[in-house]
């Protein structure tokens, strides 16, 4: 059974790119377009995601808030999260990592590198 990855980003082009990259490498992908969507998806799927790729800048519930909410429940705490965002100031990186993100990638990023890191986390 393939691993399931939740992609959370409001940029359609990026979503397309990630979806293609990940599914052509054997992962199942689910999309969420913003934070609220993401949290709904997680609870609807009873937290059965193997990994989440998370953007920071999204309306209302941004990536950091999603991280916070995920960290508050036992069932979702352990889902590894890789942040992928244009927010690259030091305080943002620190914030993301201290909120529990397993990794923090800054845009512009290398899709192959993301793939490698995801692979390492999942194995």
């Amino acid at each position: 059974m393939g691993k399931r990855i939740l992609i959370v980003d409001d940029d359609p082009l990026l979503v397309k790119l990630l979806q293609h990259k990940l599914s052509s490498n054997g992962y199942d992908t689910v999309i969420a377009h913003d934070g609220a969507d993401a949290l709904r998806s997680v609870s609807a799927n009873k937290g059965r995601f193997d990994l989440i790729v998370l953007d920071a800048m999204m309306p209302e519930i941004d990536g950091f808030e999603v991280l916070r909410k995920l960290g508050q429940h036992q069932s979702t705490k352990k889902i590894p999260v890789v942040m992928l965002t244009a927010r690259r100031k030091e305080q943002d990186v620190v914030a993301g990592l201290s909120l529990g993100a397993r990794d923090y990638l800054v845009k512009p990023f290398m899709p192959d590198e993301l793939l490698t890191r995801i692979g390492r986390i999942l194995n």
Binding site: M57, M58, P59, E60, I61, D62, R87, K89
Partner: peptide, 11 residues
């Protein structure tokens, strides 16, 4: 306030 917090501005 939540909506202000998520504005796209660097600092």
């Amino acid at each position: 306030v939540r909506s202000f917090l998520s504005l796209n501005y660097p600092v």
